[in-house]
């Protein structure tokens, strides 16, 4: 019968395929987030003549260039003074640093999001792919949508985080997006770098 001749081949194929998948499973390299080029240009643009907005919490962020459309929750700092991030079981949510200004106010508003979680890539996984000139839209609780244009994307070691550039005062409305990047340190369970996107309000 035909199956007597083909069954051994099918069994052998299944065994080889199974062994191959197990080998792949045991030696898989983790999916690593994109890293901005070290020489990524920073576009210095004159701030357009836009009247600053009143304070209103952001509720949604959209970044069409990398397919981000995420809800935003307010975050603060933990007991050690480190910036909080949304819980890992909500990897698709971004956080707004509520002690700073809101998007559209004069100053730099700060949004933070996970690069990945145990479930895989998270909301800001592709932040390192953003380039100068691409747009970010933030919807606020007052229903206004503010548009920011990327000035630059850079990676910084966490122990040399540019706090002044991220949280410091500014004369115009800016936006800072933060996530993790660079090599993953298995000993500490953390990425070594932070990826920071610098953007200026343009509409």
């Amino acid at each position: 019968m035909w199956w007597r001749r083909t069954l051994p081949a099918v069994v052998a194929l299944l065994a080889v395929s199974g062994l191959g998948l197990i080998t792949v499973g045991l030696t898989a390299e983790p999916t690593r987030p994109p890293r901005p080029p070290a020489d990524a240009p920073t576009r210095s643009r004159p701030a357009p003549d836009l009247a600053p907005l009143a304070r209103a919490a952001p509720v949604r962020v959209q970044i069409p260039a990398i397919g981000v459309r995420a809800e935003i929750v307010a975050v603060g700092v933990d007991a050690a003074g480190v910036l909080e991030v949304p819980p890992l079981d909500k990897p698709t949510v971004a956080g707004w640093y509520r002690h700073g200004v809101s998007p559209g106010e004069t100053g730099n508003a700060v949004l933070v999001g996970h690069v990945d979680s145990p479930a895989g890539p998270a909301v800001f996984f592709d932040l390192g792919r953003l380039r100068a000139g691409q747009e970010i839209q933030v919807t606020r609780a007052d229903a206004r949508v503010t548009t920011f244009t990327v000035d630059g994307v850079h990676a910084y070691p966490k122990d040399h985080f540019p706090s002044g550039l991220v949280y410091g005062p500014a004369d115009a409305a800016g936006l800072r997006l933060i996530t993790c990047g660079g090599p993953f340190d298995d000993a500490t369970g953390n990425y070594v770098d932070n990826i920071v996107v610098f953007a200026t309000r343009t509409a």
Partner: peptide, 20 residues
């Protein structure tokens, strides 16, 4: 301006950080 300390712990290492 008084800021948070250092950067943000915004990643877990992904879905197969143990190499599996």
């Amino acid at each position: 301006t008084v800021t948070p300390i250092g950067g943000a712990p915004a990643g877990s290492g992904g879905d197969n950080r143990d190499g599996r």
